[in-house]
Design a protein around this nucleic acid. Structure first.
Length: 195
DNA sequence: TAGAGGATTGAT
DNA sequence: TCAATCCTCTAC
């Protein structure tokens, strides 16, 4: 069952980031579905320096974060990689969850073809890699997450607290002490989390 | 309008 | 450890 918009519109972005573990992320292109189980997320809130929308700073790039929760925020990082975020909270409250890694479930052949590799080793184990594997780019920026071509799904799995590992977020040294917030969530001992 | 740098990745 | 690569943001 696709996640409903109310799931995303809650205020506590770290809770949403935790609850997204074990959920499914899928795309459908050319009549073919690909995607997998979310195993790694990071929360970003407008109250801390790691966030593009820190102190409600709105730019052309992050404008979609200020809309209502439940939409995709896709942007280009390092000139090379598309990064996929889930916008959360209500309109005017710019929070988001970065999806960092998936465990592949569906459309293996298609994902391997997009990655131009023959084996399926770690094809979705990183934020830039999973977008490439699923065919996600900035054209999907602002797309609702219950769309026909892009959606998140409750797969019915139950994730216990002891299965969730919290740690500091990756690659945001510029955020100073906020870089130390334990807002990265991974599934314990999962093979598919990023390096 | 110029210049710096980035929520990454894979090769060396 | 380092280059790839280009868009975004800031400062002038």
């Amino acid at each position: 069952m696709k996640l409903e918009q109310s799931f995303y519109q809650r205020r506590d972005v770290t809770r949403i980031a935790r609850e997204l573990l074990g959920k499914g992320l899928f795309t459908r292109q050319g009549g073919k579905t690909s995607g997998g189980i979310i195993v790694e997320t990071e929360a970003y809130s407008n109250t801390e320096r790691g966030c593009h929308a820190y102190q409600n700073r709105m730019t052309n790039r992050n404008e979609i974060m200020f809309g209502e929760g439940g939409h995709a925020y896709v942007y280009l990082c390092y000139g090379i990689h598309n990064l996929f975020n889930v916008v959360t909270n209500g309109e005017g409250e710019a929070d988001a969850v970065l999806i960092r890694a998936l465990e592949p479930v569906e459309g293996l052949q298609l994902m391997k073809a997009r990655m131009k590799v023959k084996n399926d080793n770690r094809i979705t184990s990183g934020p830039g890699k999973l977008t490439k594997a699923l065919g996600i780019d900035r054209r999907l920026n602002g797309q609702p997450l219950w769309s026909r071509d892009l959606w998140l799904e409750d797969l019915g799995s139950r994730i216990g607290k002891d299965q969730i590992v919290m740690s500091a977020r990756i690659g945001i040294d510029y955020a100073g002490s906020d870089a130390l917030l334990p807002w990265r969530f991974t599934l314990r001992d999962n093979l598919w989390i990023s390096k």
